[in-house]
Structure formats: C-alpha cells, structure tokens
C-alpha cells in the first residue's frame, strides 16, 4: 500500500482534482480508485503499466460521478473558480487544460476520456486507443470532433 501511495498517489489525486474540482471529493475518489486496485489485485498486478490502469479507472470514476450528479456539469462549472490547475507546462498548457475542462460536458463519456488522456495526460493517439480499446482512427475522429469545439489549440497532431 505504501508503494502504491508513493508511486501513484500524486497522479491519481491530481486527476481526481482536475475533474472533480473539490478537494474532499477528490480525496474520496482517490481512495475508491486504490480500493479497486486492491480488490482487482490480479488484474492490476498483471498490468504492464499500473499507472495507465489507475489513471483510466480514476478518469472513468470521476467522469461517471459527474455524470450521475443532478445538474452535475452546472455545479462543476461553479467550482471552476476554486479549482487548482493540474498543468505543469506553463501558461499555454494550463490554458489548454482549462479549455478542455470547459468543453468536456459537450461530448459523450468515451470522448471525454479520450480527450483527457490525450490533452491532459499527453498520451499518444496509439496509447489512448490502447487504453480505451478503440482503433487509432476512431480515437482520432473523436478527438477531431472535439477539436471543432475549441479551435486550433485542440488540434490533433
């Protein structure tokens, strides 16, 4: 448990905060994600990249939580001002992450996950496709549709 905490805790909490924008809920979500890692011990240990597994579960968990809230997206925007950005790559990157976050509610759940893994995690198209079990052209198409909402900044490379 201590190893999971030391290796992955910061990344998982960062993802939960980015999406839920609430420190308490993010911490609860992080606990849920690690509890799942423990209950799915065999699957988890078999993963070539436990980080990928955890970030995928954390992303889905938070997106579903938002989706199941009544008027969840509206509340989510209200929390925007309190949120801390997860960005590390300077002002431009932080703006892209904020833009991504603002536009998420306009697309379906799978596109949301693809967008987060691509624009926030910095995964390649191939990595996103592998994580979501879709083909690269499918992921590209979804990301390009998302980019139409936000312009050049969200261009798929």
């Amino acid at each position: 448990m201590r190893e999971l905490y030391a290796k992955y805790g910061g990344s998982v909490l960062g993802r939960c905060r980015y999406l839920l924008k609430d420190a308490t809920r993010a911490e609860d979500a992080m606990h849920d994600v690690f509890a799942r890692a423990l209950t799915h011990g065999e699957d988890f240990r078999a993963e070539a990249s436990p980080l990928t597994w955890l970030m995928k579960i954390a992303t889905n968990h938070c997106l579903n939580q938002l989706r199941s809230e009544r008027a969840g997206w509206r509340q989510w925007f209200q929390r925007d001002a309190e949120a801390r950005s997860e960005g590390h790559g300077g002002q431009g990157e932080m703006e892209t992450r904020d833009l991504v976050r603002r536009l998420l509610s306009r697309v379906d759940l799978e596109t949301q996950a693809a967008v987060i893994h691509y624009h926030v995690d910095g995964m390649t198209l191939e990595e996103v496709a592998a994580v979501l079990g879709r083909s690269v052209p499918t992921i590209r198409k979804r990301l390009e549709r998302f980019a139409e909402l936000g312009g050049e900044e969200l261009r798929v490379r």
Partner: peptide
C-alpha cells in the same frame, strides 16, 4: 509531476490515505 506527489504527502499523510482506502 513530482510536486503532485509532494502535495499529496503534505495534504494526505500515508496513515490517512491507508484509512481512507480501507473505508472504501
């Protein structure tokens, strides 16, 4: 990225993390 981990350790000490995962 390393700051994420430092922030976690400052805000959620391991004992609290462990107890939270146990509750989950």
């Amino acid at each position: 990225i390393e700051k994420d981990q430092t922030a976690l350790e400052a805000q959620v000490p391991f004992e609290r993390f462990e107890a939270g995962v146990e509750r989950a």
